[in-house]
Design a protein around this nucleic acid. Sequence first.
DNA 1: GAGTGGTCTAGACCACAAC
DNA 2: TTGTGGTCTAGACCACTCC
Lengths: 238, 238
Amino acid sequence: MTNKYLTIYNQLIEQIKSGKIPPQTLLPSENELSDQYQTSRETIRKALNLLSQNGYIQKVRGKGSIVIDVSKFDFPVSGLVSFKELSGKMANKPNTIVNQLELIKPDSFIRQQLQLSGKDQVWKIVRTREIGGEKIILDKDYLNYKYVPSLTEEICSDSIYQYLENELNLAISFAKKEIVVQEPSTEDRELLDLEGFHNVVVIKSHVYLDDASLFQYTESRHRPDKFRFVDFARRPQR
Amino acid sequence: MTNKYLTIYNQLIEQIKSGKIPPQTLLPSENELSDQYQTSRETIRKALNLLSQNGYIQKVRGKGSIVIDVSKFDFPVSGLVSFKELSGKMANKPNTIVNQLELIKPDSFIRQQLQLSGKDQVWKIVRTREIGGEKIILDKDYLNYKYVPSLTEEICSDSIYQYLENELNLAISFAKKEIVVQEPSTEDRELLDLEGFHNVVVIKSHVYLDDASLFQYTESRHRPDKFRFVDFARRPQR
DNA sequence: GAGTGGTCTAGACCACAAC
DNA sequence: TTGTGGTCTAGACCACTCC
């Protein structure tokens, strides 16, 4: 028993993905859909707006809603994707090595990133991600100690997010990400199989909780040949 | 005379950016706002949902809408940004060099990218972007000839998008982007000031028109030290 | 219990596309 | 002119937070 507009949204996705409603054709009109689903037009519109925002349809005033060819999608459209979710879609089973797990006094850079005073403590977690026998990703996480009283190597080698959400009931709500390319640090060279690559792709994330408090700063450092980022950009306004 | 909910949205952004409503405080409740703006609650909710989607506030059920610290933003949050818009925010005035402008028969790769048959023709445009005297970006655009009957070097050295939207009345509606890191091609080495960098960041975009037809394929090839991408990722569902 | 945001409704009028 | 999606309203009930 969930939302009406979410179930409609999911049913329409199903029909689009299965090809029951082919690309480039029109969806039934909003009025028809409200009849079909025995609901109000505004509720239908909520479902259609979700479809539009997630790249399934394109709404055109006076015409209708055009189904977009969605077959190329093999990756989530933006969004917060943990390593475990991501690697679950890959062929080779990945491996996580916990290089460091420590409660530290943050230096000025981390204090600034997490907007902390000098007295706060921070979990520092350094992990290497191995895929197909190669060390591809170096994750450096800094978590505000205030929200996470305990943390073990076992948790870190699995999924920290799962632990936070299921055990601690912390709800991650959004993140601001910045992607840049850097020269590898000596740490990168030590911990990753860089194989002569002269750059690493660094994804810096500030992660916020449900109540908009800043909770985590992470640098995810990727070997450039294995990095890929997909984005669906809708034109602002119009 | 525009939308009610958009003007409310913009007015609230103004108040957030100016600090009149400080970060971490609560917005007035939806009922209060409907009083203030003499409008219905649903209209207020449309404005607030826009604020939420664009990272200005975080809505919490039972509590209210928390203002997020937006001061770090110095870049648009995702979205389709033309080179001209982007460079307008930089100190050094940029320069565009048109290296190639030609009507071609697309090879199989481009045909596939633009989903064309063998007989269609395509504009190929190669441009170098110079910032602060350095050639930083190489843009390779492929436009479906069907939608663009004529194109001049002058237009290309300015903004193609401006021409398309203002002169041809073509409305770009969304794009799918993919970001990867590659070894520089010989073309990259020729046309860019790579200064010993061993990688280029490649942004591949498929651009669609208002009616969801595929219109353009672009590879924007950046020198890695000058590349930066900012993303605001809301957690799906919840 | 009072106040908040989340969902849903049934209706209205408008702007736009197609015929 | 007809049908489409876009905006807006005034009300209802629900789930949740806080006191």
